[in-house]
Design a protein around this nucleic acid. Sequence first.
DNA 1: CTGAAAGCGCTTACAG
DNA 2: CTGAAAGCGCTTACAG
Lengths: 353, 353
Amino acid sequence: MKSIGVIDIAREAGVSTATVSRVLNGSDRVSDRTRAHVLEVIERLGFSPNASASNLRRGRSDAIGIAVASISQPWYVKLIRELRRAVTARGMTTVVYDLEHSSRVLIEHTESARRLRLAGMILATGDRLDAANVNASLHRLAGSMPLVVIGQHLDDATWPTVYFDDVAASEAAADELLERRSRPMLFLGSSARSFLSDQRREGVRRALEARPNLLRDSTFIQLDGPMDFATGYDEVVSRADELRRYGLIFCVNDELALGALRALGELGLRVPEDLMVIGYGDVDMLPYLTPSLSSLSGDVNAIAGDALEAIMVGIAGEPVFDTRVHSRRIVHRESTEDRAARPPATAEGAARG
Amino acid sequence: MKSIGVIDIAREAGVSTATVSRVLNGSDRVSDRTRAHVLEVIERLGFSPNASASNLRRGRSDAIGIAVASISQPWYVKLIRELRRAVTARGMTTVVYDLEHSSRVLIEHTESARRLRLAGMILATGDRLDAANVNASLHRLAGSMPLVVIGQHLDDATWPTVYFDDVAASEAAADELLERRSRPMLFLGSSARSFLSDQRREGVRRALEARPNLLRDSTFIQLDGPMDFATGYDEVVSRADELRRYGLIFCVNDELALGALRALGELGLRVPEDLMVIGYGDVDMLPYLTPSLSSLSGDVNAIAGDALEAIMVGIAGEPVFDTRVHSRRIVHRESTEDRAARPPATAEGAARG
DNA sequence: CTGAAAGCGCTTACAG
DNA sequence: CTGAAAGCGCTTACAG
């Protein structure tokens, strides 16, 4: 079936295609009477303007790309939704890209975004972007459209960056927990592929550096595979013999922490009495675990607001800020409670964390 | 900056734009020598073909839309990834739409898909699609491109449908659990807005119908808000006084079940000794909870395979099957274990469920 | 194997 | 406020 175009609408309405186009685009250079008539015809014929033709003629798309490290991580889903809400409110649209933590997929998506001539791209990932092929793709992308990166600053970036200071957040959190319990730590999950996990480890290391005897007996585990529930579980179970050396397990994300929690339970170790556990990201389910999990939380809306401002200013062709840094806060729940024995479970209202 | 086009490539390579286009599209009507030369120029100038121009001229996009009820639910994320993998392997691309469980967003996205002249749309949701405005959008969409719906069959559907038989799955599961523990049930989460939750309740109801005395003392809770961790928690806490009446809490999704689990723990009720708990969806984290959560599992790949076949056949313009039905299986973990006292936690290897 | 030229469906500067 | 016409950057039927 041949689909309906502006020509069909123009003929049916007895006007020119220029007028149809003006109605479609909300131009005020159309009389109310003409506009109403044209809209009626559009509605009646079920006309939907061809976005390719429109974008081609205009020389740009009205869509902003949102690429995130993984849509299976709740923080990124919140970010996508907040950005979509804000972008839609400005009359533009969004295209979502799930990078699946894969540099191959990242490169595929950046090429796709270039072909689509998107209005701009917001890229949010903690995975390293400095591999040669990824870096080249990013620079090519930034040469085609405004780009904003959320999560990490690259030395050779020509684009604005918004991120959390995870070194400071980790150091502050580790410091606070070491004050409470002066014991060695097990750090779970730095990775050569993840920029953020490096930052998080670095912060913890700094806190331990001020306590050399604890640093000596602490362990930093590097993970090369996925950092998910199974890995958190496996890593803890495989270290069953040495766990009593530590006072805290510090995980680079909440998934690892949840897996660790399960493993500790199976091993008969109590949380927080024997070992405290803390994660990163503060996903929604943490208050509902038993024990509820503490985590380092980062405000989605603050980041989304900055990214949106940067991309809009960039689209307008104006100069954009270079870098914006946000801070995280620690959210204490049962897994880092300072207690010798568990209080009555209902007392804390932990589910309202 | 004016971006590079086929004309620039043609001039630089000393060929016509027709030849450049043939190289871009992998036509075999180009000599190897010419092809290599043109590709070199494309690479050197960093040329990226304008998708709008290409789509406009071809009259179609090579992108398939994938719209899911919510990207915060892991099953849908798996579906998206499996579909993307398969679509990419066929040389096409995907566009992801997150419906956020909102009919308004669904309508926005279907209109957007029509404007983009997508090659086809795969829509996966358990939310009701029979409201007048949603239904009209779907029929308009199906009039514009091949459509496949995953999750529910509508009587007036003109498109193929793939779904799980959740009535049968719920009935079988409830039956099995009632055999083990002949006690009334608390069913959590049917909703006027969710087709799937209706199906799931219906299956449970049928299993109870064969046991009238249990049916009489069972309770079916309708939820109008979100069906998330907080709701599962709140609903159980607010029924603290009556919980001992029940032998099982049957939840329409895993999120509710997790919230319920936490609430039961706070109330001092043991799972599964006092109450069994089962969810729906079998998300990855369930084996790592304490106790690990039982759930009804559905195979993503089988559904994705059928949906992909249907959309591809539809794009080819050939007749497509009407309906394909898949079955779910129950995955037993600690929360439905038949036991009087908890065995040693390490015994079961639950984390490998 | 290659090129000249038409045309996909819109939008917009220009003229009235 | 409205219309005639050019043109966005590709692809493809046609001719050679």
